[in-house]
Simulated assay, not measured.
Amino acid sequence: MRALLVVNPAATTTSARTREVIARALASEVKLEVAPTECRGHARELARRAMESGSVELVVAFGGDGTVNEVVNGLLHHGPNPGGLPRLAVVPGGSTNVFARALGLPNHAVEATGVLLDALYRGREREIGLGLAGGLEGTRDEEVPDRWFTFCAGLGFDAGVVGGVEQQRERGRRSTHALYLRQMVRQFLRDPHRGRGTITLERPDAQPVRDLSTAIVCNTAPWTFLGNRPVYAAPRASFDDALDVVGLTRMSTTAMTRYATQLLRSSPERGPRGGNVVVLHDVTGFTLLSQAPLPFQLDGDHLGVRFGVRFTGVRRALRVIV
C-alpha cells in the first residue's frame, strides 16, 4: 500500500525523534512518503494533491485535531466518492486529540502507531460520517465555502473560548486545560448576548428553535476531554449517525454553573439537561441564523464570526484505519 504521512512539526506533543520513529515504523508496513507541513492550510493542500494524483491509497495525519481537519478537507475536496471513499489514518500529536480518541485510539503517538500498524496488517477499517458546514443563503456569509468537520462545531460561547485560546497561543502561551478554563470565565463575563440569545435553529418540517445563546454541533461523543476525562455534551452523537445539536437558551451565572457541573459529571448515558437545554439527535440538515455576528469554530479551529451557518450530516463520508 502507498501512503502519505502528513506531519505537523509544530504539533504540541511531538518531537523530531518521535516523528522519525513513527515514520520508520509505518514504512515497515507501507510504501511511505513523508510530507511536513510548512504553514496553515498546507496539510489540506498535500492531501488534496494526493487524492487528485491517485498516487497514494492512504493518508496518515500526524498532528492535532487541526491537522486532521485540514487533511480531511483535502481528501474530500471534491466530496465523497461512494465507489471509493478516501482512506485516512490518524496519529495523535496535539494537546487534546479529540477525533483520534473518539475513534478509540490511545492518546500517545507511539502507542497509536502500534494500533495503526496492527489495523493495517489485519485490514481493519470503518466508514464514518462527517459534518459539513457552509454559508447560509440570504446572509452576508452566503459565499463562505463549505468545510468538513470531524467531531464538533460551535456558534457562540464555545467558539469564543476557542478564539481566546488561539489568541493566547499566538502570544506564546502553552495550550493547557487551565488556559481553556480561564478563557471560559473571560468569555462568559464579556459575552454581550448571554442575557438573551440571538440564534435561531431551523430545520425542514419542524418548528424553529429561537433565542439560543449558544449552539454546539456534535458528530461524535465525547465532545472533548479534560485531561483523561471525557466530556459528553451530546452523549448519543455517533460517527454512524448524522449530527446532534445542543443549544442553551439561558446563560446566567446560576445556569452556567449548573451546565458546567453537568458537563463535568457527564457520561455516555447522560449529558446537559434542563428546561433551558435544547437537544436534537441524528439531524441530517439544519441552519443556525444569528441576529448578531457570533464567533464560529470547527474542530477547535476558530473561523471568525458568522451570522448564519448551514449544516449537513453526511453518513459514510470517509474510511478510517482503526
Rank of each mutant, 00 (worst) to 15 (best):
T284V: 15
D282E: 10
F99E: 03
F239E: 01
D282C: 05
V161G: 07
R124V: 11
I22E: 04
D241M: 09
L117F: 01
S175Y: 14
T257Q: 14
L243C: 05
G285L: 13
Y232K: 07
R174T: 14
G163A: 15
L117E: 02
V90F: 01
G285T: 15
E57K: 05
V305H: 15
L75N: 09
G83M: 05
F239V: 06
G313S: 05
G271A: 02
S28R: 11
L130N: 13
S15P: 03
L155H: 05
L248A: 12
I216Y: 11
A89W: 00
D141N: 10
N97M: 04
E127F: 01
S55I: 08
L189V: 10
I22N: 04
G104C: 03
V217T: 08
F311D: 00
F149W: 11
L58T: 05
V72Y: 01
P293N: 04
A292N: 06
R17F: 08
T176L: 03
Q187W: 04
V7H: 02
H302T: 12
S15W: 01
R258A: 15
R250M: 09
R173G: 09
G79V: 03
Y180F: 14
R169W: 11
R196Y: 15
A153P: 07
N219K: 07
L294D: 05
Q262N: 08
N219H: 06
E269G: 04
